[in-house]
Nucleic acid binder design. Structure first.
Lengths: 247, 247
DNA sequence: CGTGTTCTTGATGATCATCAAAGGTGGTGG
DNA sequence: CCACCACCTTTGATGATCATCAAGAACACG
């Protein structure tokens, strides 16, 4: 393999997430449906960064100068409330795209929960690429529609379920996110704190703590280490999300 | 004015919402940023319908065959829950676009709350238009980003606010929606039932009823007729949305 | 005018927030 | 290597908020 191809391969991984080992197709990220020529063009404009945990990719309300793709690590998206607390809008994992906005300001902040590797693309350059490659715009539209669906799902979760139902749904979505990343390991990474989860689910951190403790006592989950959890009784969690509801 | 121009004018209103009387620019709808030639091409593909209240524009999970623009009237977007109840994802008003999806199925249902006039465009034809006019795709992306922001706002509302805060935020958003449609009238149309509002806010209809009654008793709102409401003390409602929070 | 739907109001209780304090964990620096 | 510190987590006690159950009132419609 010549050096240029090697560099391209690396850069492709950077922007587009990992390549599926068996099928060779891109499974996540920004450029999944692009052909190779377009891809190289896009990648030439991007840069790669390694960042420590708690670093913030962008602040709410700051100028939207970059679009990011998470290559490794986990991030949370948050909005500040007038009283200083925060609402967590969602969590993002390897392969997810962050920070694309129609407006020129980020409507929420993105903070890393773990150390991470990200691919960063200047918004100005992206706009040029969008003009040249309409398929890329279609890709953003798809991503946006997907995010919209996820947010609506979360609205149902927060609006209509009990505390146990919400936590159950959250754990199941963690597992689902792992599956999309081809994680075979049944024990999931859960780098977010109880407070993060609480701010995501519209609960207090005490209620979250009590709830996962209850799940553990019932033998539904297991926590082999800090920041790691394994679902043992998926059926029971699913039942909670289907049955237990407010009204 | 020749008949063709008259028809075009009507059709433009149909798909694009009303033209702003003073500035002449399109203020809502699908085609706001399109030039006239593109617009005529799009409109040639669309048709217009008058529908009674309680009619459903599309069902959750059915084939996504059409995209709609509301010309007159109000609709609610809903998702069914496993136990038969519903979550209202949002309300839509004149000028709003409904039913655009990346997938081939509608992820939620749209039901009219009032009799309405809608403009309907076949999805198949839309895809052709999208290929011919990339600007149109950009327009959908903007719409999607806007919807995403609104849904996130609602997530904050449902996740972090008390019952009074949620109802206050809802009333303020109603007023805001009216303002965007250039409604000068201070008394707002509120065609949704208490149950609809409750399903939107993650409350019960009794709590909604008690809350707006409380607002009325305090002189913060007025209900001159069924389905009509006027905000008298905007400041008080704003205060509720800023202050009163769970945690 | 009668009937079904929507709205209001009351009484009661469950869920979950709040306040409080103690036990863990990881990281840092002496 | 250990001690200390900051932060996270757990657990308990108490009470406020809001769901639930119930019944009557107002309204819309045919």
């Amino acid at each position: 393999m010549n050096p240029l191809d090697a560099a391209r391969g690396l850069a492709r991984d950077a922007l587009g997430g990992e390549i599926c080992g068996t099928c060779g197709s891109r499974v996540t990220g920004l450029c999944r449906p692009l052909d190779a020529a377009t891809l190289d063009d896009v990648l030439a404009e991007a840069e790669q960064l390694d960042l420590p945990a708690r670093n913030t990719l962008f602040e709410e309300g700051s100028r939207a100068g970059h679009v990011f793709t998470l290559i490794q690590g986990t991030a949370k998206l948050t909005r500040l409330l007038p009283d200083g607390r925060q609402q967590v809008l969602g969590f993002r994992f390897a392969g997810d795209v962050l920070g694309y906005t129609a407006s020129d300001r980020y409507p929420f902040a993105a903070e890393l929960l773990t150390s991470a590797r990200v691919c960063r693309l200047e918004r100005r350059r992206l706009d040029g690429l969008l003009r040249r490659y309409p398929a890329l715009e279609r890709r953003f539209l798809d991503l946006c529609v997907q995010e919209l669906a996820a947010t609506q799902e979360q609205l149902v979760n927060v609006g209509r379920r009990t505390a146990e139902g919400r936590v159950a749904a959250f754990l199941l979505s963690l597992a689902e996110a792992g599956r999309r990343r081809n994680q075979a390991d049944p024990v999931l990474a859960m780098p977010m704190t109880r407070a993060d989860i609480a701010d995501f689910l519209g609960l207090t951190l005490e209620t979250v703590s009590r709830t996962v403790t209850a799940f553990r006592r019932r033998g539904w989950v297991r926590e082999p280490a800090h920041g790691r959890i394994e679902i043992l009784r998926r059926d029971q969690l699913v039942e909670l999300t289907e049955g237990a509801a407010i009204d």
